[in-house]
Amino acid sequence: MSLVDFFTPINLSEFSGSNGYYNSQFGKVVQVYTDSFPDLEDAEVKPQIALVGVEEERGAVNNEGTKKSADAVRRYFYSLYQGDYQVRIADLGNIQAGATIRDTYYALKTVVEELVKNDIVPVIIGGGQDLTYAQYLGYEGLEQRVEVAVIDAKFDLDQDNAEETELSSNTFLNHIILHQPDYLFNLSNLAYQTYLASKESINMYDKLFFTTMRIGMMSGKLDQAEPLIRAADMISFDIGSIRASEAPGNANAWPNGLYGDEACQLARYAGMSDKCSSIGFYEFNPTFDPMGHTASLLAQMIWCFIDGYYNRKNDAPLIPKSSYIIYRTTLANEDYELVFVKSKKSDRWWMQVPYFGSKSVNERYYWVPCRYEDYQTAVDGDMPDIWWKTHQKLQ
């Protein structure tokens, strides 16, 4: 089955109006699936980024209307101007809801898998956040460990019936964590609000050595979240993590959360990450967005992701070694020598965590994105928390 079989084309005239678009607007430069499907094979013309709409809402709990999100975002996205770079972006159209929700999951899984295999980054504009599970399934056949970052105001887990939970936007993390075969290396939950998270959920994350960062830790110092985003292969962004005054287009919107400019910055961090190979924006509901503020914000978030992508530094350590400054420090008890590297290109930091036992035959070290503050912690003689959690997962 060809990918084109999963998609319905776009009627561009619905979004462009009578005047069309200027040459540097996305509506003019994006390869839009109108009559013919974009060429995804020819290395000379194939896109680097592909927009994927998903008209599915059956898994969006108390948020009916999310299936209309992709077209609502296109109306604003196509009118934005590209940055100072040549883009190769395709809009593949919309994946229609299948006869059952499992059919939609299968379609999205297949699309993500084929695009990632082909070095094309899918930008999913979806319905419910349950589609994150289908996004995750797209990595199953790629034979790699996967790190997932979820930007969400709460933990979408069912603690009481972990193994018998029906898949929905409130429980998709159960299905990712328990999925077999297990190829999940790490799960990060960013921008959660403590009063929306049970202590059992937080304890479970700690027990599994997963990573959490509450909204208060990020307020005014968004760079704290950058290493966690840089570590992720795939990112799931719940529009409900943005405060209702900034993004009202969500039936489950909360009064507190990220500001719009913070959401854009997080999207740009994701785009700049050399490792990020897919991102999904979920839970936007045009029914609650009569003025188009949320659709416009989401279009700008996608713009920021694209801007980050075209400003990637390709500086994952240590190739070449001359592009890095290496720092070594010993902890107070002298059990370990910790090795840090700093990229001369981007000033970003990584920390070296050795493999123990026979976990990896071909690799001796795992490079963990970190911050300068983690290096300072090690210089002061203390073990950075991120080193310890990674060490536990590598045993």
Results as ranks from 00 to 15, higher is better:
Ser2Trp: 03
Asp5Ile: 00
Asn11Thr: 12
Ser16Met: 08
Gly17Thr: 06
Gln25Tyr: 04
Thr34His: 06
Asp35Leu: 08
Phe37Leu: 07
Gln48Pro: 00
Glu56Cys: 09
Glu57Gln: 15
Ala60Ser: 15
Glu64Phe: 10
Thr66Trp: 01
Ser69Ile: 05
Ala70Ser: 14
Ala70Asp: 06
Ala70Lys: 06
Ser79Lys: 15
Leu80Glu: 10
Tyr81Phe: 13
Tyr85Phe: 15
Val87Lys: 09
Leu92Arg: 08
Ile95Gln: 09
Gln96Cys: 12
Thr110Arg: 11
Lys117Leu: 13
Val121Trp: 02
Gly127Leu: 02
Gln135Ile: 03
Glu143Leu: 12
Val146Ile: 14
Val146Leu: 12
Ala149Thr: 14
Val150Gly: 01
Lys154Asn: 14
Asp156Met: 05
Asp160Asn: 12
Asn161Trp: 05
Glu166Gly: 13
Glu166Pro: 11
Ser168Ile: 04
Tyr183Trp: 07
Leu184Arg: 01
Phe185Asn: 01
Ser198Tyr: 08
Asp206Asn: 15
Lys207Thr: 14
Leu208Ser: 03
Phe209Thr: 10
Met213Leu: 09
Met217Tyr: 09
Gly220Asp: 05
Lys221Asp: 13
Met234Arg: 03
Asp238Ser: 12
Gly249Asp: 06
Ala251Gly: 06
Asn252Thr: 10
Tyr269Asn: 02
Lys275Trp: 01
Phe281Val: 02
Phe284Tyr: 15
Pro290Ala: 02
Gly292Phe: 11
Leu298Gln: 10
Leu298Ser: 03
Met301Lys: 01
Ile306Asn: 04
Asp307Arg: 02
Asn314Thr: 07
Ser323Pro: 00
Tyr327Phe: 15
Thr330Gly: 09
Tyr336Leu: 11
Tyr336Pro: 04
Phe340Val: 01
Ser343Glu: 06
Ser343Asp: 08
Ser346Gln: 09
Gln352Val: 02
Val353Gln: 09
Tyr355Trp: 10
Phe356Thr: 15
Val361Cys: 08
Val368Ser: 03
Glu373Ser: 15
Trp387Ala: 11
Leu394Lys: 07
Gln395Ile: 12
